[in-house]
Amino acid sequence: MKELVCIVCPNGCKIIIDDNGDILNAKCNRGIVFATEEATSPKRTVCSTVATTFSDFPVLPVRSSAEINKIDIPACMNALNNVLLDRRVGRGEIIIKDVLGSGVDIISTSSMQYTYCDVETPDDGSKDNA
């Protein structure tokens, strides 16, 4: 028997996989899909940041466009730590294509145009706050 908590929605169903492999207590189909996957190859969406050269926006929030294998999270974080973004991107733009050959992209989750909406910002990123 295995107990897990569904992370698909805020209900957080406590799902039980019994010794016959039957999935109990899931309130919806997505929970059953989650539990099946969780028992075989657990997957997670990775949400993190990448560094930029812009002093007014030092890090850009990013996420994986779909879930990746849980065991690949450290390697994915490593890949993200090697990024230094020197262009201003929009929301949804691809930052790393096909990360770790997973078929999943790392995408921007924020639009850098929303920095200081009504304030002029340096474009070249070379200026420092100092």
Binding site: V8, C9, P10, T45, C47, S48, T49, P61, R63, R91, T109, S110, S111, Y114
Partner: peptide
């Protein structure tokens, strides 16, 4: 920057920045 926002309003699992933008 984590996800889980917007399931009720958009039926999608968005990050905070995506939701507010």
């Amino acid at each position: 920057i984590h996800d889980g926002f917007g399931l009720v309003t958009f039926g999608e699992k968005l990050t905070g920045p995506e939701y507010c933008e």
